[in-house]
């Protein structure tokens, strides 16, 4: 047992927490700019301490559990939502340097997708244990949505897995460095993946589980203080994880484009990562929310066939002489 097995995850946790804080700050700023406002400016220089103040407020709040709630499940739900969100980061290779990835699991992609669906349980459980109709509705919606979109999400990466011939995320990146970034040959898969990923993250335009105009707040209506903070943290940790995964699967991970290798691979990774995070905020400020029936129809009748077509097309093109180097 080496000491860094315990120290590195703690460092990663700190990085994730700082990311979450400044992702929220940046989100509010970007949405502010788009709506011709300034966003937070008051707390600290340029409002930089705004999220820290918000988190501090949450932590000192009274911890309220409704008297009719199912106490053990109510307490378990935020933990069940957050733990998978953080543990999926274990398989993300940030660069090819050995100290910047935690475990080189052979089925890393599968581990990620399998574990990330446990969070639905936390959300559903939180909604049910609150003993509140809005929470239950939000939880049910979240469960239905996340399970529906899990399928196109998984099927859309099959093309990537076929071209790499591996479920290991490091190997997937190395195939892209040798060939082309998957976003070009697997464009259809990329489009399906990004839409399904946004739906998995419960973000606008797919934020039905937290539709505040219909459901008060959704599955976390009854949660306050640090339990609520944990649900929020899980959501933004998934933004971190999903942005990393998209960078790895479709944008060549730490690969430097145009031969710009003097910029370190970690910086390339962070740049691509930030582009996706910005895209999420941009979409949130642009699009309205989908209707419930549109949401389900879109997943089963739109994304699922497209994902299956993508699998067949990439399997076919793998056999075409010239194109096979990209698939």
């Amino acid at each position: 047992m080496d000491w860094y097995i315990f120290v590195y995850p703690v460092i990663l946790l700190a990085i994730v927490l700082v990311f979450v804080m400044y992702a929220i700050y940046f989100e509010r700023k970007v949405i502010g700019w788009i709506q011709l406002r300034k966003g937070p400016t008051e707390t600290g220089p340029k409002g930089l301490f705004q999220s820290a103040a918000d988190v501090f407020k949450l932590l000192i709040k009274e911890d309220i559990i409704p008297s009719k709630a199912d106490r053990p499940l109510f307490k378990l739900a935020p933990i069940l939502a957050y733990v998978p969100a953080f543990s999926v980061l274990a398989v993300i290779p940030f660069t090819d340097a050995p100290y910047l990835k935690f475990s080189n699991v052979a089925v890393g992609l599968m581990y990620y997708l399998a574990l990330s669906s446990i969070t639905v349980m936390g959300v559903l459980l939180g909604g049910w244990a609150s003993n509140n109709k809005y929470s239950l509705l939000g939880g049910m919606r979240a469960g239905a949505q996340m399970i529906s979109y899990e399928i196109p999400l998984v099927l859309s990466v099959v093309g990537v897995v076929m071209s790499a011939g591996s479920l290991n995320l490091t190997e997937i990146v190395e195939t892209q460095i040798a060939g082309a970034w998957n976003v070009f040959p697997q464009f259809l898969g990329f489009v399906v993946f990004i839409i399904a990923a946004i739906a998995e993250l419960n973000r606008t335009p797919f934020d039905l589980p937290e539709a505040e105009s219909e459901l008060v707040a959704g599955y976390h209506t009854e949660y306050t203080g640090f339990r609520f903070a944990f649900f929020m943290l899980a959501e933004y940790t998934y933004v971190f994880a999903m942005a990393s995964l998209i960078t790895i699967l479709f944008f060549g991970g730490w690969d430097a484009p145009f031969g710009l290798t003097f910029i370190p691979p970690l910086v390339w990774f962070i740049l691509k990562f930030c582009c996706f995070v910005f895209l999420l905020f941009w979409l949130r400020a642009t699009f309205p929310r989908l209707r419930g029936d549109q949401l389900m129809e879109f997943a089963w009748k739109g994304l699922l066939p497209l994902a299956i077509i993508n699998i067949f097309v990439s399997a076919l093109l793998k056999e075409v002489p010239f194109l096979s180097q990209y698939f």
């Binding site: 700019w33 788009i34 941009w282 979409l283 400020a285 642009t286």
Partner: peptide
């Protein structure tokens, strides 16, 4: 729509 929001920034 995305173009409009980007320009708004």
């Amino acid at each position: 729509g995305m173009g409009i929001t980007l320009k708004n920034m």
